[in-house]
Design a protein around this nucleic acid. Sequence first.
DNA 1: GCGAATGTACGAGACCTATCGTACTTCGCG
DNA 2: CGCGAAGTACGATAGGTCTCGTACATTCGC
Lengths: 131, 131
Amino acid sequence: MPATSTPSGGAPRVLGHPSRDAIRLEDVLHALADPVRLGIVLVLDEAEGECSCSVFDAPVSKSTLTHHFRVLREHGVITQAYRGTAKMNALRRDDLEDLFPGLLDTVLTAARRQAAAGLGAGASAAATGRA
Amino acid sequence: MPATSTPSGGAPRVLGHPSRDAIRLEDVLHALADPVRLGIVLVLDEAEGECSCSVFDAPVSKSTLTHHFRVLREHGVITQAYRGTAKMNALRRDDLEDLFPGLLDTVLTAARRQAAAGLGAGASAAATGRA
DNA sequence: GCGAATGTACGAGACCTATCGTACTTCGCG
DNA sequence: CGCGAAGTACGATAGGTCTCGTACATTCGC
Protein backbone atom coordinates (compact mmCIF):
# COMPACT_ATOMS: atom_id res chain seq x y z
CA MET A 1 0.00 0.00 0.00
CA PRO A 2 1.76 3.12 -1.22
CA ALA A 3 1.02 5.55 1.56
CA THR A 4 1.58 8.96 0.12
CA SER A 5 4.00 9.12 -2.71
CA THR A 6 6.85 6.83 -3.53
CA PRO A 7 9.85 9.05 -3.75
CA SER A 8 12.82 7.90 -5.69
CA GLY A 9 15.21 7.58 -2.81
CA GLY A 10 12.90 6.89 0.07
CA ALA A 11 12.69 3.84 2.25
CA PRO A 12 9.90 1.65 0.95
CA ARG A 13 7.07 1.30 3.41
CA VAL A 14 6.18 -2.02 1.98
CA LEU A 15 8.35 -4.96 2.93
CA GLY A 16 8.80 -7.95 0.73
CA HIS A 17 8.59 -11.35 2.36
CA PRO A 18 9.20 -14.63 0.57
CA SER A 19 6.19 -16.79 0.08
CA ARG A 20 6.10 -19.96 2.09
CA ASP A 21 7.03 -22.10 -0.86
CA ALA A 22 10.02 -19.92 -1.51
CA ILE A 23 11.55 -20.56 1.88
CA ARG A 24 14.58 -22.80 1.54
CA LEU A 25 16.10 -24.87 4.28
CA GLU A 26 19.62 -23.77 3.46
CA ASP A 27 18.57 -20.15 3.79
CA VAL A 28 16.92 -20.70 7.11
CA LEU A 29 19.93 -22.58 8.36
CA HIS A 30 22.19 -19.86 7.10
CA ALA A 31 20.09 -17.21 8.76
CA LEU A 32 20.22 -19.10 12.02
CA ALA A 33 23.94 -19.74 11.77
CA ASP A 34 24.84 -16.23 12.81
CA PRO A 35 25.13 -15.57 16.54
CA VAL A 36 23.49 -12.19 16.32
CA ARG A 37 20.57 -13.47 14.33
CA LEU A 38 20.23 -16.53 16.49
CA GLY A 39 20.00 -14.22 19.46
CA ILE A 40 17.33 -12.18 17.75
CA VAL A 41 15.30 -15.25 16.97
CA LEU A 42 15.70 -16.41 20.53
CA VAL A 43 14.28 -13.16 21.84
CA LEU A 44 11.52 -13.20 19.27
CA ASP A 45 10.65 -16.71 20.27
CA GLU A 46 10.26 -15.79 23.89
CA ALA A 47 8.34 -12.69 23.00
CA GLU A 48 5.75 -14.91 21.39
CA GLY A 49 4.48 -11.98 19.45
CA GLU A 50 5.73 -8.78 18.00
CA CYS A 51 8.81 -6.95 19.02
CA SER A 52 10.32 -3.67 18.06
CA CYS A 53 13.71 -3.67 16.45
CA SER A 54 15.38 -1.85 19.28
CA VAL A 55 14.92 -4.17 22.19
CA PHE A 56 17.91 -6.30 21.39
CA ASP A 57 21.15 -6.04 23.24
CA ALA A 58 23.22 -7.23 20.37
CA PRO A 59 26.71 -5.75 20.40
CA VAL A 60 26.36 -4.30 16.94
CA SER A 61 25.40 -0.99 15.47
CA LYS A 62 21.94 -0.05 14.34
CA SER A 63 22.84 -0.45 10.71
CA THR A 64 24.09 -3.94 11.31
CA LEU A 65 21.00 -4.82 13.23
CA THR A 66 18.87 -3.63 10.36
CA HIS A 67 20.93 -5.79 8.06
CA HIS A 68 20.38 -8.86 10.21
CA PHE A 69 16.69 -8.25 10.42
CA ARG A 70 16.56 -7.96 6.70
CA VAL A 71 18.40 -11.23 6.26
CA LEU A 72 16.02 -12.89 8.65
CA ARG A 73 13.06 -11.50 6.79
CA GLU A 74 14.32 -12.23 3.30
CA HIS A 75 15.14 -15.78 4.28
CA GLY A 76 11.66 -16.34 5.55
CA VAL A 77 12.39 -16.56 9.24
CA ILE A 78 10.55 -13.50 10.42
CA THR A 79 7.83 -11.10 9.41
CA GLN A 80 8.18 -7.38 9.69
CA ALA A 81 5.57 -4.68 9.61
CA TYR A 82 5.67 -0.99 10.24
CA ARG A 83 3.79 0.47 13.10
CA GLY A 84 4.38 4.16 13.30
CA THR A 85 8.05 4.82 13.84
CA ALA A 86 8.60 1.34 15.10
CA LYS A 87 8.75 -1.87 13.19
CA MET A 88 7.27 -4.98 14.63
CA ASN A 89 8.95 -8.31 14.16
CA ALA A 90 7.54 -11.75 14.57
CA LEU A 91 8.65 -15.27 13.84
CA ARG A 92 7.00 -17.10 10.98
CA ARG A 93 6.25 -19.99 13.24
CA ASP A 94 3.44 -21.48 11.23
CA ASP A 95 5.22 -21.41 7.92
CA LEU A 96 8.42 -22.75 9.38
CA GLU A 97 6.64 -25.43 11.31
CA ASP A 98 4.75 -26.47 8.26
CA LEU A 99 7.78 -26.60 6.02
CA PHE A 100 10.28 -27.99 8.48
CA PRO A 101 8.43 -29.56 11.38
CA GLY A 102 10.20 -29.16 14.66
CA LEU A 103 13.17 -27.40 13.18
CA LEU A 104 12.75 -24.04 14.80
CA ASP A 105 11.99 -25.56 18.13
CA THR A 106 14.92 -27.90 18.01
CA VAL A 107 17.38 -25.22 17.00
CA LEU A 108 16.10 -22.80 19.60
CA THR A 109 16.26 -25.43 22.29
CA ALA A 110 19.77 -26.30 21.25
CA ALA A 111 20.71 -22.64 21.32
CA ARG A 112 19.36 -22.20 24.83
CA ARG A 113 21.08 -25.31 26.00
CA GLN A 114 24.37 -24.20 24.56
CA ALA A 115 23.96 -20.74 26.00
CA ALA A 116 23.31 -22.20 29.41
CA ALA A 117 26.29 -24.50 29.14
CA GLY A 118 28.44 -21.64 27.98
CA LEU A 119 27.43 -19.45 30.89
CA GLY A 120 28.16 -22.14 33.39
CA ALA A 121 31.52 -22.92 31.87
CA GLY A 122 32.92 -19.46 32.28
CA ALA A 123 32.49 -18.65 28.67
CA SER A 124 35.37 -16.61 27.48
CA ALA A 125 35.59 -17.16 23.79
CA ALA A 126 32.00 -18.20 23.56
CA ALA A 127 30.68 -14.77 24.34
CA THR A 128 32.40 -13.20 21.40
CA GLY A 129 30.59 -15.36 18.96
CA ARG A 130 33.60 -15.45 16.73
CA ALA A 131 35.77 -18.49 16.79
CA MET B 1 42.32 -24.57 15.94
CA PRO B 2 45.02 -26.94 17.16
CA ALA B 3 47.72 -27.31 14.58
CA THR B 4 48.40 -30.85 13.66
CA SER B 5 52.11 -31.31 13.31
CA THR B 6 52.94 -31.10 9.67
CA PRO B 7 56.29 -32.81 9.33
CA SER B 8 57.71 -31.57 6.09
CA GLY B 9 54.97 -30.59 3.74
CA GLY B 10 53.11 -33.81 3.44
CA ALA B 11 49.48 -34.56 3.97
CA PRO B 12 49.06 -35.27 7.66
CA ARG B 13 47.89 -38.77 8.32
CA VAL B 14 46.33 -37.68 11.56
CA LEU B 15 43.13 -35.69 11.37
CA GLY B 16 42.08 -33.24 14.02
CA HIS B 17 38.52 -33.32 15.20
CA PRO B 18 36.99 -30.90 17.66
CA SER B 19 36.13 -32.35 21.03
CA ARG B 20 32.49 -32.66 21.83
CA ASP B 21 32.51 -29.60 24.04
CA ALA B 22 34.07 -27.58 21.29
CA ILE B 23 31.22 -28.15 18.90
CA ARG B 24 29.18 -25.00 18.49
CA LEU B 25 25.65 -24.79 17.27
CA GLU B 26 26.40 -21.92 14.92
CA ASP B 27 29.16 -23.93 13.33
CA VAL B 28 26.97 -26.94 12.84
CA LEU B 29 24.23 -24.79 11.38
CA HIS B 30 26.71 -23.10 9.14
CA ALA B 31 28.11 -26.40 8.00
CA LEU B 32 24.63 -27.63 7.22
CA ALA B 33 23.66 -24.44 5.46
CA ASP B 34 25.58 -25.33 2.32
CA PRO B 35 23.74 -27.42 -0.27
CA VAL B 36 26.78 -29.52 -1.07
CA ARG B 37 27.49 -30.28 2.55
CA LEU B 38 23.86 -30.90 3.30
CA GLY B 39 23.86 -33.43 0.50
CA ILE B 40 26.93 -35.10 1.91
CA VAL B 41 25.39 -35.34 5.33
CA LEU B 42 22.24 -36.73 3.80
CA VAL B 43 24.18 -39.51 2.09
CA LEU B 44 26.19 -40.17 5.21
CA ASP B 45 23.02 -40.41 7.20
CA GLU B 46 21.56 -43.03 4.94
CA ALA B 47 24.85 -44.90 4.84
CA GLU B 48 24.52 -45.35 8.58
CA GLY B 49 28.22 -46.04 8.76
CA GLU B 50 31.35 -45.14 6.96
CA CYS B 51 31.61 -43.90 3.44
CA SER B 52 34.46 -43.11 1.18
CA CYS B 53 34.91 -39.59 -0.02
CA SER B 54 34.32 -40.41 -3.62
CA VAL B 55 30.81 -41.75 -3.63
CA PHE B 56 29.16 -38.40 -3.82
CA ASP B 57 27.70 -37.03 -6.97
CA ALA B 58 28.17 -33.46 -5.95
CA PRO B 59 28.68 -31.20 -8.95
CA VAL B 60 31.97 -29.90 -7.67
CA SER B 61 35.60 -30.73 -8.18
CA LYS B 62 37.61 -33.02 -5.98
CA SER B 63 39.36 -30.13 -4.32
CA THR B 64 36.11 -28.51 -3.41
CA LEU B 65 34.77 -31.76 -2.08
CA THR B 66 37.81 -32.11 0.12
CA HIS B 67 37.21 -28.61 1.35
CA HIS B 68 33.63 -29.38 2.27
CA PHE B 69 34.59 -32.53 4.07
CA ARG B 70 37.12 -30.60 6.02
CA VAL B 71 34.56 -27.99 7.00
CA LEU B 72 32.21 -30.71 8.11
CA ARG B 73 34.93 -32.34 10.15
CA GLU B 74 36.30 -29.19 11.70
CA HIS B 75 32.83 -28.11 12.68
CA GLY B 76 32.18 -31.35 14.43
CA VAL B 77 29.62 -32.81 12.09
CA ILE B 78 31.56 -35.79 10.82
CA THR B 79 34.49 -38.00 11.66
CA GLN B 80 37.13 -38.94 9.16
CA ALA B 81 39.70 -41.68 9.28
CA TYR B 82 42.13 -43.01 6.78
CA ARG B 83 41.81 -46.49 5.56
CA GLY B 84 44.41 -47.18 2.98
CA THR B 85 44.00 -44.86 0.06
CA ALA B 86 40.43 -44.19 0.99
CA LYS B 87 39.12 -42.05 3.78
CA MET B 88 36.10 -43.15 5.68
CA ASN B 89 33.54 -40.62 6.78
CA ALA B 90 30.87 -40.97 9.39
CA LEU B 91 28.41 -38.70 11.11
CA ARG B 92 29.05 -37.83 14.73
CA ARG B 93 25.56 -38.86 15.62
CA ASP B 94 26.15 -39.48 19.29
CA ASP B 95 27.94 -36.24 19.96
CA LEU B 96 25.46 -34.23 17.98
CA GLU B 97 22.51 -35.96 19.55
CA ASP B 98 23.94 -35.38 22.98
CA LEU B 99 24.66 -31.73 22.41
CA PHE B 100 21.65 -30.79 20.33
CA PRO B 101 18.97 -33.43 20.77
CA GLY B 102 16.96 -34.05 17.68
CA LEU B 103 18.72 -31.40 15.64
CA LEU B 104 20.39 -33.62 13.10
CA ASP B 105 17.30 -35.67 12.60
CA THR B 106 15.06 -32.67 12.22
CA VAL B 107 17.34 -30.97 9.75
CA LEU B 108 17.80 -34.12 7.73
CA THR B 109 14.11 -34.78 7.65
CA ALA B 110 13.48 -31.23 6.56
CA ALA B 111 16.09 -31.60 3.87
CA ARG B 112 14.50 -34.76 2.53
CA ARG B 113 11.10 -33.23 2.61
CA GLN B 114 12.29 -30.19 0.73
CA ALA B 115 14.11 -32.33 -1.78
CA ALA B 116 10.98 -34.35 -2.37
CA ALA B 117 8.92 -31.22 -2.77
CA GLY B 118 11.47 -29.84 -5.14
CA LEU B 119 11.42 -32.90 -7.34
CA GLY B 120 7.70 -32.69 -7.75
CA ALA B 121 7.85 -28.96 -8.15
CA GLY B 122 5.06 -28.95 -10.68
CA ALA B 123 2.39 -29.87 -8.20
CA SER B 124 4.22 -29.12 -5.02
CA ALA B 125 1.82 -26.58 -3.66
CA ALA B 126 -1.19 -28.74 -4.37
CA ALA B 127 0.43 -32.01 -3.39
CA THR B 128 1.30 -30.96 0.11
CA GLY B 129 -2.20 -29.80 0.82
CA ARG B 130 -1.11 -28.43 4.11
CA ALA B 131 -2.74 -25.56 5.90
C1' DG C 1 6.12 23.25 10.73
C1' DC C 2 9.95 21.51 13.83
C1' DG C 3 12.44 18.36 16.46
C1' DA C 4 13.05 13.80 18.28
C1' DA C 5 12.84 8.91 17.63
C1' DT C 6 13.15 4.96 14.79
C1' DG C 7 14.85 2.80 11.19
C1' DT C 8 16.88 2.63 6.18
C1' DA C 9 20.13 3.20 2.31
C1' DC C 10 24.49 3.60 0.63
C1' DG C 11 28.99 3.11 0.34
C1' DA C 12 33.45 1.18 2.30
C1' DG C 13 36.52 -2.00 4.50
C1' DA C 14 37.93 -6.41 6.24
C1' DC C 15 37.19 -11.03 6.39
C1' DC C 16 35.50 -15.42 5.00
C1' DT C 17 33.79 -18.78 1.64
C1' DA C 18 33.19 -21.51 -2.53
C1' DT C 19 35.17 -22.77 -6.49
C1' DC C 20 38.71 -24.24 -9.49
C1' DG C 21 43.23 -26.19 -11.49
C1' DT C 22 47.58 -28.00 -10.76
C1' DA C 23 51.19 -30.20 -8.24
C1' DC C 24 52.03 -33.25 -4.67
C1' DT C 25 51.93 -37.12 -1.21
C1' DT C 26 50.52 -41.52 0.25
C1' DC C 27 48.85 -46.14 -0.37
C1' DG C 28 48.01 -50.60 -2.66
C1' DC C 29 49.10 -53.67 -6.33
C1' DG C 30 51.64 -56.09 -9.62
C1' DC D 1 60.22 -50.54 -7.87
C1' DG D 2 56.90 -48.14 -10.84
C1' DC D 3 52.04 -47.03 -11.71
C1' DG D 4 47.49 -45.83 -10.85
C1' DA D 5 44.11 -44.38 -7.40
C1' DA D 6 42.54 -41.41 -3.65
C1' DG D 7 43.05 -37.25 -1.43
C1' DT D 8 45.45 -33.05 0.03
C1' DA D 9 47.70 -28.59 -0.23
C1' DC D 10 48.36 -24.36 -2.27
C1' DG D 11 47.42 -20.38 -4.92
C1' DA D 12 44.10 -17.69 -7.36
C1' DT D 13 39.66 -15.72 -8.14
C1' DA D 14 35.09 -14.34 -7.64
C1' DG D 15 31.59 -13.39 -4.69
C1' DG D 16 29.39 -13.07 -0.29
C1' DT D 17 28.97 -11.44 4.56
C1' DC D 18 29.57 -8.60 8.70
C1' DT D 19 30.67 -4.53 10.31
C1' DC D 20 30.62 0.32 10.49
C1' DG D 21 29.60 5.46 9.89
C1' DT D 22 27.06 8.90 7.84
C1' DA D 23 23.24 10.83 5.53
C1' DC D 24 18.46 10.40 4.75
C1' DA D 25 13.45 9.18 5.14
C1' DT D 26 9.18 8.55 7.87
C1' DT D 27 6.24 9.14 11.76
C1' DC D 28 4.84 11.14 16.20
C1' DG D 29 4.22 14.87 19.51
C1' DC D 30 4.16 19.71 20.28
